[in-house]
Nucleic acid binder design. Structure first.
Lengths: 153, 153
DNA sequence: TTATTTAAGTTGATATAGTCAACCATATGA
DNA sequence: TCATATGGTTGACTATATCAACTTAAATAA
């Protein structure tokens, strides 16, 4: 009798979809309130660059687990918006180091606020332990999904 | 000193994105293994229709929390693929009832298998209680995000 | 040192998702 | 019966993702 299991897995899947949808739409509107017009992926990329001082397109793609083609495009737009700059990578002539500009740092600060509002709304009925637990479980599941097929990308 | 909080929220957000991305890509490949060529959203819609005997486009849109325009398109394609049919709704001349065809039911069964594989992979390091807890927390968060703005759509 | 292979990044083409506004037809209620 | 609301459709557009081909530089083998 596996239908119970199947059921709970369907629920898990649906709940996840709903959560991410609701999360993105809330965050998008928070970002808009800050008068910023930046898609979520761009935000995430920008954050990743700021957090990691010597990012390159490829290292970012790996950390975000996104296609490098997509990253190239996002970076191009971030650069056009003056949020990041690319510097030649002294260690590899094919690659560039990514840095947030001053403007980019400014924008990041505001984005983090928006993100925090959203996260606070989202977790307002949970205590810190629950949030912690949730994050851990999430990370576990990501690892489980990634492990089998040695990902390249 | 709120930077700790901000940090954990960023982590939560990133972890979530990664999970959904990994989940979708795993599920997509499981679906492909079944020789089915159906986007995830179509699958979810089909599932929703099968689960709920007297679905209409709008009720489905509400349950899935998706835009009705998007639902219309998904339904059109499911119908073109012969997976669902539309019957006039005796209670409202503007609306149609949605039913899976026999073929649709067949496909659903195989999709559920694919979904189950993915879920099993994803949760293999967790026990049932953890999964349960995770699903609950997810639902809580969805509720928190939905509550404030009385959603229409 | 040249030739071959690999890696970083870009580009093109295409698929999938989601959003918003305008719109048509039916329903509802004043 | 007129005005308004609702179910559903369509158009236009944005955002996200995937894959393959390609360019240039790097690494390695011959």
């Amino acid at each position: 009798m596996k239908s119970d299991t199947t059921m709970s897995e369907s629920q898990l899947s649906d709940a996840l979809h709903r959560l991410v949808h609701a999360y993105k739409s809330h965050l998008r509107s928070e970002v808009a309130k800050q008068n910023l017009n930046l898609p979520i992926t761009h935000f995430r990329a920008l954050k990743g660059i700021a957090r990691n001082p010597s990012s390159t397109a490829l290292s970012l793609a790996r950390r975000m687990q996104r296609d490098k083609a997509q990253i190239t495009r996002v970076l191009k737009e971030l650069q056009e918006d003056g949020l990041i700059e690319k510097r030649p990578n002294p260690e590899d002539g094919r690659s560039q180091l990514l840095l947030p500009t001053r403007k980019g740092q400014n924008v990041i600060a505001r984005l983090l606020e928006a993100e925090q509002h959203t996260a606070q709304t989202m977790t307002r009925s949970l205590n810190a332990r629950d949030v912690q637990r949730f994050t851990e479980l999430t990370a576990h599941m990501v690892a489980n999904l990634d492990e089998p097929t040695d990902r390249e990308n």
